[in-house]
């Protein structure tokens, strides 16, 4: 127990003094996950909006697959991107394996289905209400998608936050394609896994506390976005 309290104190010290390693790891994690979420949002909005509006054969199957991929295990996403980027893989020539770019790609694979499926659901719900009105106004499919995305903006923000929560907390995908290389591809989650197994509980705890704070902040943002939407009757 004394060890634990000791480690906890050291951990707080690392955070308060903005320990260089800790900040470096935090910034890389944020850079990777934020970039991945931005890319996944653009893809997810487009895919989700199109799936809600455009009728084509196999639409139901694509929607179902997209929803199922929301539960894609991060290690499987990592494995998939690893095979893609490894020297023998189709994108091997790019030499991206064990770089932050590889980690971004893996998280895009992981997060796009989440944002895409939630976007599709939000747009479909809105379309049920708007369909006749928009057709009466003569909206083209593209205009309809744009309208639905904008009117579903509060739900889309929620989807993006959910995607970010997933990306920042996952360890399997970034571990496989990033390799947890010190000063290069070490993120909060991979560092926690490594430092814990090495017995360096203080750094692991410090990173864990930071990660927990981010998770709480994301959740608080979610709640306030939903409250704002309700207040404006935009929910």
């Amino acid at each position: 127990m004394a060890d634990f309290i000791d480690a906890f104190q050291t951990a707080l010290g690392l955070i308060v003094t903005l320990n260089h390693d800790l900040v470096e790891i935090l910034l890389l994690s944020l850079k990777v996950s934020l970039t991945a979420v931005v890319i996944a949002s653009v893809l997810g909005f487009a895919i989700g909006g199109a799936l809600a509006v455009v009728r084509f054969p196999g639409r139901g199957a694509v929607s179902a697959i997209l929803s199922a991929l929301m539960g894609l295990p991060p290690v499987v996403a990592g494995l998939f991107v690893y095979l893609l980027l490894s020297n023998a893989g189709p994108l091997g020539v790019l030499q991206l394996l064990y770089t932050p770019t590889a980690m971004i790609i893996a998280q895009v694979v992981l997060v796009t289905p989440i944002i895409g499926a939630l976007t599709r659901q939000a747009c479909e719900d809105l379309l049920e209400e708007y369909d006749e009105q928009l057709r009466s106004l003569g909206a083209s499919p593209t205009a309809t998608i744009v309208t639905l995305l904008w009117d579903g903006r509060y739900r889309l923000i929620t989807a993006v936050l959910a995607g970010f929560g997933r990306a920042i907390a996952e360890v399997g995908a970034v571990m496989i394609v990033g390799g947890n290389i010190d000063h290069v591809t070490r993120t909060m989650t991979t560092a926690i896994a490594l430092e814990t197994s090495k017995g360096n509980i203080a750094l692991a705890l410090a990173l864990g506390l930071v990660l927990l704070t981010i998770a709480f902040a994301v959740n608080a943002a979610l709640v306030s976005v939903q409250r704002l939407a309700k207040r404006l009757a935009y929910a």
Binding site: E129, Y130, E132, Q133, L134, L137, G138, A139, A143, T147, W150, D151, G152, R153, L232, A233, Y234
Partner: peptide, 22 residues
């Protein structure tokens, strides 16, 4: 329509949106 269908936007933006579509 029987039940008003209004976008989740301001009053002015609702009219503006319809005009934009035309």
């Amino acid at each position: 329509f029987q039940r008003p269908v209004l976008l989740r936007r301001s009053v002015a933006a609702n009219v503006s949106h319809a005009l934009g579509l035309r």
